[in-house]
Design a protein around this nucleic acid. Sequence first.
DNA 1: AAAGATTTGTCCGTATGTATG
DNA 2: ACATACATACGGACAAATCTT
Lengths: 248, 248
Amino acid sequence: MSQFSTIARHSGISAWKQIADQISRSISSGEFDDTGMVPPEMVLAEKFGVNRHTVRSAIASLAEEGLLKRVQGRGTLIEKRERLIFPITRRTRFSEGLGKQGAEMSTRLISYEELEATQDIADALALPPGARILRLRTVGSADGQPVSTATSHFDKARFPRMAELVGRHHSVTKAFAAQGVDDYVRVSTEVTGRTAAVEEEAYLKLSPGSVVLVALSVNADLEGRRIQYSRSVFAADKISLKLDTASV
Amino acid sequence: MSQFSTIARHSGISAWKQIADQISRSISSGEFDDTGMVPPEMVLAEKFGVNRHTVRSAIASLAEEGLLKRVQGRGTLIEKRERLIFPITRRTRFSEGLGKQGAEMSTRLISYEELEATQDIADALALPPGARILRLRTVGSADGQPVSTATSHFDKARFPRMAELVGRHHSVTKAFAAQGVDDYVRVSTEVTGRTAAVEEEAYLKLSPGSVVLVALSVNADLEGRRIQYSRSVFAADKISLKLDTASV
DNA sequence: AAAGATTTGTCCGTATGTATG
DNA sequence: ACATACATACGGACAAATCTT
């Protein structure tokens, strides 16, 4: 094991940084789970084909981040981190799902705007293109720690008070209830991943280059009418999405 | 709009690389969808607080990747890329899902090994810890392009010929069929994201630092016995996962 | 159709940062 | 700590292609 790639020499990233990244990724993918520690510096230096000083710089940066812990005479230990599990079912609600794992959930309204439905929004909500849309930007937190930020779209004609109600109740579910929708279901979810945009880094308090999961989802009321189209962005190192396909 | 963060000097990553990453992420998050092009070099240089040449280096690297296309006198155009949609349902099979989108699918066996079940494998397959396990590493391709790599675990006592059969039939489904399992369902899936490990970069032909989606899944036969526990890794810029939610 | 503004392409030179031995 | 080699970043000037007036 311990499969490392060679250092790219004119890639715009300095050698020590590349080595730090590779060690970090190897840890994420479970490479050193058996020992719980990173190979000795001298071994790494030889593996990467670099000078001894260069590996030392790499490990020093990871130790400062808190990912590694250097112990004199013993080696370099890996610090463990766990992800919250966000369940995605037909009846997913942001607050309930994580709430069951003991986290205190809240949704904060960041901003909202009114716009005309573009093609993709109109398609998702089954409205004519150009319909008036309310777009809400929210940040969801677990125990005060921001874990997701969502951009949600609603039909303004049907839910004119959405922004006000989400702002007051700190919950989309409650805002729906206050406007006559007591229950709703998730119609579809599409998930992909990328690195966070600068704005998302700010909202989710991420370090630059962090990976996020992006979930596009559509909710409908019990008569099948589309009521919400949203793009939720999760910090991938804090959250994993759990899909339950047990009882279809 | 056009929200960029400042460039960190002496961070181990050169300015042009940081700028390239930020532009790339802005494109991914749909920042320039209205115009379909990136702001002029001089504007970017001012925004990032760097020389125009530095911005040019950044754009040059993205152009070489095929993400951007520069046209003298006109500007820098964004090249569109589309993701394949991989549906995850109770009846997901790798080859069927993408096959419906017209892609030619195949599964290639990379390697296999025999090992004793660790706690997580034993839990997932409902076997006693220490049971003999076959672990297969496969790469799945669409139209010859690798899109996913999976590490799958099987009960060796029940499926002793798994490696041989997957290697011959290029399909897990057919390998199951040859061993008496005509049908099976997906019990659970857990999705998260991170940057690719070096090994995964090689198998999926990814550039360093690419984002991958990681899906942990368990399959069971129709009597509910667990038959497969696997970790599938997808290239996030080629694939999005469509989750068909259960009506729990 | 012509002129000017905008934007990318190329050349020069200089100073600083990075990695090695 | 030092010397060397090379990549990185900056500054300026002008050419070439495209768009606007």
